[in-house]
Nucleic acid binder design. Structure first.
Lengths: 368, 368
DNA sequence: GACGGCTACTAAATCGATTTAGTGAATTCA
DNA sequence: TGAATTCACTAAATCGATTTAGTAGCCGTC
């Protein structure tokens, strides 16, 4: 069907080997022969068959990314789409493609990596959402699959890492709140099994400790909106409830803000709120959300570049540190309230995540 | 390196051909020989080399998806991640993978399709974001690449389509608003070059016409938050400004709601708002957003299934219609205001998208 | 007992590109 | 001038799995 190297060879009156040499710019063919071969190849519309090239060279010309998320959560994360776009920028330049796998069930993740490695579908993978004591490191080493990790794992890892110090952003957020007079600053974190969940919590903790403030206002959630609501409810039900909450992502911050407002609190009058990610909608909340902006696109570009270097053996193996995220101050943060605000009664989690929040029953106060 | 079919053959004391027959369950090998071969294959840990299989069978065992979006917009769209998750569910069952390409520049899109087709990287593609008079239909036919389109193109297309009638959702939204007494119902649409932009507008138009209401309160935007703000500003500056606006997606609705509130309007007291997508954050806005929920996961599952059928020649070629989206009523819609509300002065677009809306300042971190 | 038909298997071709070994001719050097 | 070297190219092997053509052995049958 398609035109092969044999077609070009017979059309140009030479052997297949000569065509290959000519097309790849190798020595071994005369100048006018080379010219003739190139012209006939172009005239016939020849393009290399990647499947054949792949078999011969034992390379897949593709890299893999396995995303382990429940389907419902995937759509709400602003990170991956931008990250993937960055990866693509680099891959396209090198005529590589991205094989994307979504693992929605627990067991599916390891299966995905095996599938990519065993069949030789990819030449390497990007490991994201690195976890504490991450078993995938050993898995990938066992599979002999080159990899690059996003941030450095807390277990010995033979793979280079592209790092983004999210602690810098959280520290800036806490210091911003302290400068506004807040002393009871809470944190709603993501699952602490994730390194980025941990590092954000630690940064919050360190910044408070450095300022001589307490660090007990922590509630673990799961990066989802319902989780953010539940964690916020727990913090706000305390006697010593916070006057400001630092969230580990924008989605939880949005949910927390909504929860607080639904319970009669003013943001930032009664409660200041910061997010993380700088999702596009964050600026258009009511009030607009103070948050932390990283650069997932650059992260993707560099991770892909490092992985390609790793695959081709040109990478030196050192880690790469990205520029730090920056704080974007909007209107969800303000001066600490002068007056004491009564604690909010805690709701049951079930109520929060289903009936109570689900439809019409949240009636927000209308002033902004 | 890896164990091949030859290794299995010599270990089992048979020819390569016999191993192949045994492993694929074909006739031509005796029962105990077959058993022995299967056992040695298992013992040696043999897995088929996809690259070889691919070359021999002239199949890629992968399908492609080209997303044409600017990198910045990608992260804010709740559709694709869920859609992709659905695609994966089907592909994994058939041991196929998804090759994802992001085309951020205009010319990159066609190049992407050619790259996927020419090298034989994929066996087919899913065509999303179908446009009016979409040139990709002819391109794909020319490339001989099987495809499935999301919704039926408005040009003759040889490819089957998986359709979701978003008109149903918009109609429900408009009727909901009419039942609340609204008569001046506007629409902020996406780019009208997209079929889903058009069909949503047409549905809005039809529903109003059916109720004997006017259809001139239309403003075209681009599915982005800044675009939604600008379009909202234009509608609200009119003398006959709407008391309700139907947005073509949640992001624009969020931005529009924020704009209205920032200009002293009450939602839904002065202005009712509906979105589209049911993004996770929509429920946590202030007020929670009335919106339209589709099922991108199912869409992805079925599109992938149809494409695989198409590739293997088992699909009959008929279109598939998904269940209709449904209206999710929350608190951003309410009774039409009794009193007249003065028109809002229009702002310049530049102001809207920068300083005016959020008084935003960016604090960069000075140390490390 | 010769022949057809069947089973169980092997040898070799195949997919398309790359690469290695080899060959004939021209050129260079002693 | 003869040997050595270089050049331009071809033939064939290679990657790993599948498939086609072919073969040896066995059974049954007329």
């Amino acid at each position: 069907m398609a035109v092969t190297i044999s077609d070009v060879a017979s059309a140009a009156g030479v052997s297949r080997g000569a065509v290959s040499l000519a097309l790849n710019g190798h020595a071994g063919v005369g100048d006018q022969t080379r010219q003739r071969i190139l012209e006939t190849a172009k005239a016939l519309g020849w393009t290399p068959n990647l499947r054949a090239k792949s078999l011969r060279s034992a390379k897949a010309y593709a890299v893999g990314l396995v995303i382990a998320r429940e389907a419902k959560l995937l759509g709400s994360d602003p990170f991956f789409p931008s990250f993937i776009a960055g990866v693509e920028v680099t891959l396209e330049k090198h005529d590589y493609t991205l094989v994307l796998t979504v693992a929605t069930e627990p067991g599916a993740e390891e299966r995905s990596y095996r599938r990519l490695a065993d069949g030789g579908r990819v030449d390497g993978v990007i490991l994201s959402d690195v976890r504490h004591d991450d078993s995938r490191i050993a898995l990938l080493r066992g599979l002999g699959l080159p990899a690059v990790t996003l941030n450095r794992p807390d277990t010995p890892s033979p793979f280079p890492a592209v790092c983004m110090d999210d602690a810098v952003g959280i520290t800036a957020a806490v210091e911003h709140l302290i400068s506004l007079g807040h002393t009871r600053i809470g944190h709603v974190g993501g699952e602490q099994v994730y390194l980025h969940g941990r590092s954000r919590r630690r940064a919050w903790q360190s910044a408070l400790t450095a300022a001589g403030l307490g660090t007990d206002l922590f509630a673990e959630a799961d990066f989802t909106a319902p989780g953010g609501v539940a964690a916020t409810a727990r913090l706000l039900a305390r006697k010593d409830r916070p006057t400001a909450i630092v969230y580990a992502n924008d989605l939880m911050a949005t949910a927390g803000q909504s929860y607080a407002q639904a319970h009669g609190m003013n943001v930032p009058g009664d409660l200041s709120i910061t997010g993380y990610d700088n999702a596009q909608f964050a600026r258009y909340l009511n009030p607009p959300l103070t948050t932390i902006a990283a650069d997932p696109l650059a992260w993707g570009r560099l991770a892909a570049a490092m992985l390609l270097g790793q695959v081709s053996g040109t990478h030196d193996g050192g880690d790469l540190i990205l520029g730090p995220p920056r704080l974007v101050v909007r209107s969800s943060t303000g001066e600490v309230p002068k007056h004491a605000v009564p604690a909010v009664a805690v709701d049951r989690y079930e109520d929060l995540s289903t009936a109570e929040l689900s439809q019409e029953s949240i009636h927000c106060q209308e002033k902004q």
